[in-house]
Design a protein around this nucleic acid. Structure first.
Lengths: 128, 128
DNA sequence: CGCAGGTTCTACGTCAGGTAGAACAATCGG
DNA sequence: CCGATTGTTCTACCTGACGTAGAACCTGCG
């Protein structure tokens, strides 16, 4: 159970991007800014969501264990439990584990990795 | 769009496991056999599904591009488009690509790989 | 031609996720 | 201490994916 919806994903992206814990309102504003008059890479809409919507999503993310909230302060402050990289790596492991022959999967995986990534991997595997 | 439901997954498992293209009826029977009186590792139920159910799922899998069917023969024959390993590796790439800093993700990923897997990777990456 | 086996259409129930109003809680200025 | 303001929780609706399958449709075979 690790799949995220589109909005959930957008919220996580903000939490991962920002350094400090954010409040629901902050996130609501930031969500509105995404794509706001930005004809660029596409994303959502410059749509103003209700704060309750953001709060609902945050609660769901909390239940999924992706978000942690400080309940002490009045505007609760939300933050990602783990970094985007950790989370993604974990997901990769999950996917890898979903096949019986992990090594065969790794073989295919390596087969289509970019050269720079291969280099990174070599470096990382080297000093063991 | 790559997530599979439980039954979809079970069908793919069968298609991946079997060597030849299967018919809907064959798959229905095999699905019934899963867990049939097998108190083991758990799975489904020895439940007899309607063939139409299997066909619906197969159609959905076809639409998702995971299954290919021969329409010429009368009982259509279904088979997985790509091997389980290829599919899984592709998924891993998808996940990897979902983060901006791929190399950082790889670093975390390698950090929690088993020794035997690390060995496999080293072998596959050669040393330039 | 009529039937049996096979496929497609249509449809319903459930659950996740997007969305938000209504109700409730806390906080702040007076 | 009280009302207004701000923030959170409850409840609920809508959509789409998926499990499930009956009804209707097609197609050789006898």
């Amino acid at each position: 159970m690790a799949s995220l919806g589109e909005l959930e994903r957008a919220v996580m992206d903000l939490l991962w991007a920002g350094q400090a814990a954010a409040t629901a309102n902050t996130l609501r504003d930031q969500l509105a800014l995404s794509t706001e008059a930005q004809g660029g890479t596409a994303g959502h809409e410059g749509k103003e969501l209700a704060v309750t919507t953001v709060l609902t999503v945050l609660s769901r993310l909390e239940k999924k264990g992706l978000v942690e909230r400080e309940r002490g302060t009045r505007p609760h402050r939300y933050q990602a439990v783990s970094s985007r990289e950790d989370h993604t790596a974990e997901l990769m492991h999950e996917v890898l584990g979903s096949a019986p022959d992990r090594e065969a999967v790794l073989a295919r995986f390596i087969g289509s990795v970019t050269e720079s990534e291969a280099e990174t991997l070599r470096k990382l595997l080297g000093h063991i």
